[in-house]
Simulated scan of single mutants.
Amino acid sequence: MINAPVRQGQTLPSRAQSSLDLLAHRIRMLPDVVWQLITSSIKLSPIENIGNRRIVVTGGGASEGPARYLAALLRNSIGLRAGFVPASAFIAPVAQSPADLLIVFSQGISPNARLALRQASQFGGVVLCTGIYPEGRSPEARLVSELRQSGAAIHVLPPEDESGLLVRVLGPATAMLAGVLFAQAAAKSLGKVWPKDPIAALPDHLATARTRVAETTAGLDPDWTLKPWAFVTARDDSDAYEGLRWKWMTALYSPAPPVWDVLQIAHGPLQHFCDEPTTLVALERNSSDDARLFDRLEKVLVPGRHRLVRLRSELEGPTALLDHDAQCNWLLLRTLERREVDLSSWPGRGLHGPLYELGRDFT
């Protein structure tokens, strides 16, 4: 069961604990949900003539991270003309050519996602990654069914529902994996080299994330979770980690933490946090190059004031991001427990309508 209601009459600490229990349950489900996608009948086939087409990728909320990641993979790893376009751009026509390809990520077919989908007929092809089955009876399911009948490629990803908390952990992860599989298929169709990525071993690797995080943070004092955070990367497009920043913001109800390239820290960020207690989370790949860079980073930090949490992934290809994401889930859970955040009742609930509901009239 993914959703568990919070009982009425609970005090804030007990309500907070119930919401954290639900989040922990979903985090533990991640390896199984990823395995469900890997072993499903979904075939993320590349689009015909994809090498000569402009590719528009979009997604809102928690789906923005996977959308940005796919655009970055198609652009940087394969050399395609792919870019992320925010939902607000679809207030006006976006397609520049009848050959343009539209890729939309939306776990529940949000109203804002429909702004893009209502322009489907203006594109030469449409791909939709969603948690909504077209065989369902909801208005969202009918919309997905209509899109499929009009020729759109529909990929239904688990889980179908992840409501109850503002923060999402399962849908964004399977959407990121779907993006990796799509980019991998595109690279193969174009005869492009693709990094070795043991997809089938990913669930087992994700299952060890909690243990690896516990070992990494064993020597830190309990208050490290209360300090300002920043993520540090090496060699990666910052767009790849937008989903991680978004998750942190929606869970902690605080500004999204920055993502800094490790060498860029010397050009402004260090001066920004030098005098303040700060936790840096290094997203490190299984590479001697990464190790050397982050070893150097440790040398510029002030012991006792700055903390460097090095999250290493044994994976080297695009799925390393999913491993980093899984490890950060456990880091986030520890931070939420320390701060006693109630995830079931978030600030601004009910005030988002004028923005969130834009697009709902497309059915």
Rank of each mutant, 00 (worst) to 15 (best):
I27T: 10
L165T: 08
Q17M: 07
M1Y: 04
T174M: 12
G219A: 00
Q17Y: 05
R349F: 11
R349Y: 10
S41C: 14
I103G: 03
L170C: 11
P86S: 06
L128F: 10
P258A: 05
Y69L: 13
R210L: 07
L308Y: 04
I78T: 05
P222T: 07
W246H: 12
A240R: 15
E242P: 01
K192T: 02
L117C: 11
Q10K: 04
A89C: 04
W194S: 03
M1N: 01
L301N: 03
I55P: 00
R305W: 01
Y133V: 14
A200G: 09
G59M: 07
A326E: 12
A173T: 15
P269Q: 00
N76E: 14
R168W: 12
K192V: 04
G191T: 03
P31Q: 07
I2V: 14
L280I: 00
P31M: 03
A89H: 06
R339S: 01
R148S: 15
L101A: 02
K227P: 06
V309P: 03
A99Q: 14
N286P: 11
V180A: 11
L331A: 03
A82C: 00
A113D: 11
V213Y: 03
P228D: 02
G179Y: 08
D236L: 11
E357S: 12
D237M: 02
T208H: 13
R210A: 08
V259Y: 01
A67L: 06
G348H: 03
R81A: 09
A230K: 00
Q271N: 14
H205M: 13
